[in-house]
Design a protein around this nucleic acid. Structure first.
Lengths: 208, 208, 208, 208
DNA sequence: TATGAATGAGCGTTCATTCAT
DNA sequence: CATGAATGAACGCTCATTCAT
């Protein structure tokens, strides 16, 4: 019973957060959304921050489930039997899918990126989120590099940071302007990346 | 005289915004930072929002000045005499420079991205900011494509969206974690992009 | 068993009261201090006030035990065989001792004096406390007067009120400022009182 | 205008404080008592504590005025032409008068003694109050001692601490029980003290 | 233009109390 | 007896906004 109520409050917080944003969401809003008395939200969560961090984590859970269900490994070490390029291709497709299906979550996450710059608790949650997501890209990048004829100058982590960054930047553009062609941007990114992976790297890159 | 006062208030708002974040900045904070009475801020700006939008625009101005001073064109049409690849190279270098020198502005912009998702006025300012910045990348992308042996499947705009997105995503990672190697990520991005530009495109990209 | 639990709660209330003060002590604090569920405190005590009154009474008990152990009579009628002056001397010494050893209790009592002025239930407990303590002084005062060559104009009760008042006033000064020399003040009081007792009284007191 | 409003709020705080006690008095109570909006009380005083400290000081002011009007010196150095014993006699009379006329203030002060034990800001205000008042007694005690044939073992400060303590203790008894004979207690104290002053001291005091 | 006093709604949080189990 | 989930009113405090001067 207690756990159910707690869950109801966290779910309500997630919905309220997506609808109104971090700072426009009050504890009263959440309690009303959950259909409980205001005091009860504070009974389960000492502060508003604590509740909202729980709501963010709750929001991320289905996304991570989805990833592992798609055969994208959540931890280091390329899963056996999944070709590196194939995994990468799936990653790009999944990203497009995600941009369509998890708009709510992206709204929340982007909101938190702003909040996290001024709020340590939220900042820590955001940092963890980025680290986790970027690691997924890193794993694939590493596997792809292993198959490249000439090794790139950049490390797998640096490449992953650039690619995850692009995913995030594309998501932001889509969020702020629903008419934005996110699929096109991801496809362009994929085209660039696969050309790079196929061609090998470094020898023709102009550097100072 | 009146304009000077107005400017002082906008400047103060910018400083307060960067220091404390959108939601932690009060009109009183701004008035104090500007050294004027609280009422005066409301004399020049009907609402807090209006003032903060003006502050954001003010904050972006010096950055755009810098770009044109560097020979990066602010409008369409590649400036005569600047080689496309050279412009691109300068763009990447400038981005790294910007990540170092304009941390304040990036904090503000990222904060605004969060706010803009739930606040139409701020949203419009953010949309304009993105559009302007992305257009810069587009111009260069167009020039580079013109020199590519085989034309890519993706449009210059789509490529620009991906690359600007990556810039933004890298900036976010740097903001949230000061230890993040932003230069490495930008270099990795440059390596990928230049390989792509040199190799031509499309023929080897695996597509479904 | 039930009584033991009740006692544990009252003891916990006393400790919490001393530690945090009347108004900063919540029922939850007390329940936690006692290691019982919040509801149980309300099972034994209808209101917070009732519990705190019980805690005050509990706190006073060891002090009264101490007094009777020292041969100071708790009720009227000078105990046989204890010289009046000797009893008085012991009273002053005991007061000094008490100021050192029962700081906790004095904090509580002083807190209650403040609360009691605005809260009838606590007020009644405080009144009873004063009455009991002052009566001890009265008994000794009566015995001392009986041995004075010339009887004072003031009644034993009035004298006891002044002396107990001084004890309390000295305790307050000590509580509010730990550097205060309470022993010195009690010694000064004793010097004054014994001079008075020895000299007889009234004839030289200037009165209007 | 601003100062008038501020004063109205402080006065209202004083009245509310006396009526309800420190912890039962809310900022809303005070604002209503003053006839102003709640926010205004916070406009003039950052915290409730700050306002209540101001209210205590305000409450003490008329009392200190009264004392100096009566020829009781507020600082060290016996005022010329006022005989020490006469000053002492006036002090006792004034104390009785005060107990009758300043009941409200004593309620407030006693309340603060309780609060001050757990609240540093209030504690500091209380400490200052005690120090000031006790100093008045010290000045007179010093003058009286100067005229005593045999000097007492106790210092003037210790004696003043005992006597001021008695004043306070008597006030407490009167506050907590309106039927208490405060005049009788002060008279008894005066009788004791004057006998002591007239007889000289120390030689007959029984000491261990 | 410029001031800053004044407003009042709203915030996060606390807490005595109730009650189903 | 005992638990602890649930309530809801109250608190101190903040703040955008208004307005008399």
């Amino acid at each position: 019973m207690a756990d159910q109520t707690r869950d109801r409050i966290v779910d309500a917080a997630y919905r309220a957060l997506v609808k109104r944003g971090y700072h426009e969401t009050s504890m009263k809003d959440i309690a009303e959304e959950a259909g409980v008395a205001l005091g009860l939200a504070h009974y389960y969560f000492e502060t508003k921050e604590d509740l909202l961090v729980a709501a963010i984590e709750r929001g991320c859970a289905p996304l991570l489930d989805e990833l592992s269900r798609q055969g994208i490994p959540l931890d280091a070490g390329m899963s056996v039997g999944l070709d590196a390029f194939e995994a990468a291709r799936r990653g790009f497709e999944l990203t497009k899918e995600e941009l369509r299906r998890y708009r709510e979550l992206h709204i929340l996450v982007n909101d938190m990126f702003g909040v996290g710059l001024h709020n340590p608790k939220i900042g820590a949650a955001v940092r963890q989120f980025i680290t986790e997501r970027r690691a997924l890209v890193s794993v694939i990048a590493l596997a792809v590099i292993a198959r490249m004829p000439r090794k790139p100058a950049a490390s797998a982590d640096a490449i992953a940071a650039a690619i995850w960054g692009a995913f995030h930047g594309i998501a932001v553009q889509k969020l702020i302007d629903p008419a934005f062609d996110a699929d096109g941007a991801v496809d362009a990114l994929a085209e660039i990346v696969f050309t790079f992976a196929a061609a090998g790297a470094a020898q023709e890159t102009p550097r100072r």
